[in-house]
Write a protein that binds this DNA or RNA. Structure first.
Length: 726
RNA sequence: GCACGCUUAGCUCAGUUGGUAGAGCAAUUGUUUUACACACAAUAGGCCGCAGGUUCGAGCCCUGCAGCGUGCACCA
């Protein structure tokens, strides 16, 4: 008997050496599979991109969950004989990474990015990104991921940069990308704009002040923005204010002296809220900006980009908002202008990455117009004809509404459609240094947009970079070599499935659909499978600030990577959050041990693992076992095809332990004692069923199954390229 | 405010087209049975959130309510 089997299972050593074997085989690369004859050239394909982890840190339990599901899908499809491609990569995560490096430099050197300058600062960011990249790659290998490393991509490498510039230029030429002064979300802490989706609302207790504004009482939570308010707005149908006419001027005493206010009537006013009257600050409020737009009102900036009050605030000029608010309220009180104050719970908009309180500002920025009509240049979409007038919104909507793509679980289809309904133009320019530089150059009043800089002197490139989701949106095709017309693009796009967490449905999936339908005329994937969040055993979201962060590699060291994968997959349906606990991990560590011991028993009794020996069909036990196994294969294959992976894993676990080990093995002991044909038949039954089980288990627990497979005398090929039983 | 999800054994969750409740872990009791004590055998444990309705029959379908959670919007 094999010497290794006599010892207890040692996952640490096995996992390292097995991964090495896989890598050396080249089978992660579908080209090699074809070359070596394990896949046929005209086989169906299965392709999937890895949602690229951010190079801001190392992998967490959520990433491990994602990797476990995807690798399982990939291994299963490879075993079905499909041309299987899983492309790895990492995401530069522009703002997140830059914010992190800024924090480190501030802490360690007491410097900010301007002290270093753009070039030096970027070097630091790149070093940081490279270090994290290496760790992440290593972690993915430890988890057993069968990624094709020869095709690895980075959202900010040269090829992806070309893809980004190409799409940008195309959109610019089509008039879909435009630059304009519009109200944007400004993060004073990160000193950049952010998109609507990068805002996190936080509840905050605050005061709601009622202020005397001439003959009106207006309500506000932000008295510090009120300096420039010279328009007072009410609903045209509000009978309380019927005597005031639109455009009427009113003299009144305000914070810093007398002003002339103008009455504006607008339908957007909620008569029920507060007093039904408000003043507006178009420069610092999206809603006010829109009102001002409708009535062509003047707009004035009150707060600068550092969150400090401008000279319009008079004696409060230069003060930070937090400091100024109390003082301004005091002054208003002294002037007798505060009529009432109430406690109020407000949702404060904060920047996801920096935590800064978002201040709307009017700025000159780049946008993607989601409502601009253009003739659709492709005839490849099922529900959009060539030259049909479309908008990006329409493209994004059509794909899901017409079920050209299914999202699992489907409740997210509704959420998606709802989100598109509320979608506004996407602000894509960021005032940060780390990212894809906007491919636009200026010279006096001229603007040039192109892949490369203009040849002549005197052109200055736009200082800004692009929202990180711009490059992520191209991921399914930029990783396949687009804009070049590569074989990969022909063979593997659209990808088969997109697997990711439901928390980035809008950030990422929606953007990929937008970019792919626009740029290549294809829906980027056929299916979307969304997984949930990993929580700790108290159901809390895992995060660094809560201190309940579990490192998947620590768990893999303690329990084996196979156990971590099983613990994450079993019992977790699509879209459901999962809880991870020591008990669960321990259970699957025991399972790995069980498999190891089964191998020992089977090999002891059938050392040659010969497959040419007959299994006595007339033996009713044998017949039953074979039928049962056949039913299991059918059942779990059906589950796999319908994305019920959590059931497959559980059923296999149950079969191996409680049918194969507890019943079939126990029964075989008696038969083996009997000797003769009965014994031979029983031995071969064990051998056959065990080999087949290893195949079924392999996508879930690749390491131990591959190791045991390699010990079986009759195994020539790697288990990872064996055929899935049928 | 709008929408969605969850509520089943102590814990984590299954329960696919309605037919009278299931798996793992934990628990209890045995067992040094020559693959495995990381094991085996057995036991116990549930008015399936609450209240109605449809049905011969409901964990599953419908209505309402409650608790928890999520997304979106509003936020003068």
């Amino acid at each position: 008997m094999n010497e290794e089997l006599k010892k207890p299972y040692d996952p640490k050593e096995v996992e390292v050496s097995t991964y090495k074997k896989w890598e050396e085989s080249g089978f992660f690369n579908p080209d090699v599979c074809i070359e070596k004859g394990v896949t046929t050239k005209d086989a169906d394909y299965f392709s999937i991109v890895l949602p690229p982890p951010n190079v801001t840190g190392t992998l967490h339990m959520g990433s491990a969950f994602m990797l476990a599901i995807e690798d399982m899908m990939v291994r299963y499809n490879r075993m079905l004989g499909k041309k299987t491609l899983w492309i790895p990569g990492t995401d530069h995560a522009a703002i997140a990474t830059q914010a992190k490096v800024e924090k480190i430099i501030q802490k360690e050197e007491g410097k900010n990015k301007n002290d270093l300058g753009r070039e030096e600062f970027l070097k630091r960011v790149e070093k940081f990104a490279a270090d994290n990249h290496d760790t992440i790659i290593n972690q993915m290998k430890k988890m057993g991921c069968s990624l094709d490393w020869s095709r690895e991509a980075f959202t900010l490498d040269e090829k992806r940069n070309l893809a980004v510039k190409t799409v940008f230029k195309k959109m610019y030429d089509d008039g879909i990308i435009y630059r304009g002064h519009r109200i944007v979300n400004w993060d004073p802490k990160g000193q950049t704009t952010i998109s609507d989706d990068e805002i996190v609302y936080q509840e905050q207790k605050t005061k709601f002040y009622y202020l005397q504004y001439g003959p009106f009482v207006i309500g506000t939570t932000r008295p510090e923005t009120k300096f420039g308010d010279k328009y007072v707005v009410m609903h045209p149908k509000d009978s309380r204010y019927a005597s005031y006419k639109d455009g009427q001027k009113i003299d009144l005493e305000w914070i810093n002296g007398p002003i002339i206010a103008t009455v504006v009537k607008d339908d957007s006013i909620d008569m029920e809220f507060g007093t039904g009257v408000m003043t507006i600050t178009p420069w610092h409020s999206v809603a006010d900006f829109e009102i001002a737009g409708r009535h062509n009102l003047e707009k004035e900036q009150i707060i600068d980009k550092y969150g400090k009050l401008l000279p319009i605030a008079g004696e409060f000029s230069g003060m930070k908002i937090a400091e100024a608010r109390g003082k301004i309220v005091n002054k208003l009180k002294n002037k007798g202008l505060v009529t009432k104050e109430e406690d109020y719970i407000n949702n404060v908009a904060t920047a996801e990455r920096t935590g800064g309180i978002v201040e709307p500002q009017i700025m000159n920025q780049w946008f993607i117009n989601v409502n601009k009509e253009f003739p659709y240049p492709f005839d490849t979409l099922p529900n959009i004809k060539k030259d049909e007038k479309v908008t990006l919104k329409k493209l994004m909507l059509s794909v899901v509404e017409n079920k050209n793509l299914d999202i699992l679980p489907n409740r997210f289809e509704k959420e998606y459609i709802h989100w598109i309904g509320n979608l506004r133009d996407w602000c894509i320019s960021r005032q940060i240094w780390y990212g894809h530089r906007i491919p636009v150059w200026y010279k006096n009043d001229e603007i040039y947009c192109g892949i490369d800089a203009p040849k002549e002197d005197g052109w200055m490139q736009d200082e800004d970079t692009l929202d990180t989701w711009f490059s992520s949106g191209l991921w399914t095709f930029s990783t396949l070599g687009w804009p070049e017309k590569t074989d990969d693009l022909l063979n593997y796009h659209p990808t088969t499935v997109l697997e990711t967490g439901y928390d980035i449905l809008f950030f990422w999936i929606a953007r990929m659909i937008l970019m792919s339908t626009y740029a290549v005329g294809q829906i980027p994937f056929k299916h979307v499978y969304l997984h949930g969040l990993v929580r700790d055993n108290q159901g809390k979201k895992i995060s660094k600030s809560l201190g309940n962060n579990i490192d998947p590699l620590d768990m893999a060291m303690k329990y084996s990577a196979d156990s971590v994968r099983m613990a994450l997959i079993v019992g977790t349906g699509p879209g459901n959050d999962t809880k991870i606990s020591d008990e669960k991990l321990k259970a699957y560590k025991h399972f790995a041990n069980k498999i190891w011991n089964i191998a020992r028993f089977v090999l002891e009794n059938n050392p040659e693992m010969r497959s040419d020996l007959k299994i006595a069909q007339e033996d009713t036990d044998n017949k039953k076992h074979l039928e049962e196994f056949g039913a299991l294969v059918k059942d779990v294959t059906d589950d796999m095809e319908n994305c019920r992976f959590y059931l497959t894993a559980e059923k296999l676990y149950h079969y191996t332990w409680h049918t194969f080990a507890d019943i079939i093995i126990e029964e075989s002991k008696e038969k083996i004692k009997e000797g003769g044909e009965t014994a031979n038949s029983a031995k071969n039954m064990l051998g056959f069923l065990f080999r087949e089980q290893l195949k079924l288990l392999h996508p879930f627990m690749p390491f131990i199954t591959e190791k045991v497979w390699s010990i079986l005398p009759a195994s020539k090929n790697l288990l990872m390229v064996e055929k899935w039983p049928n």
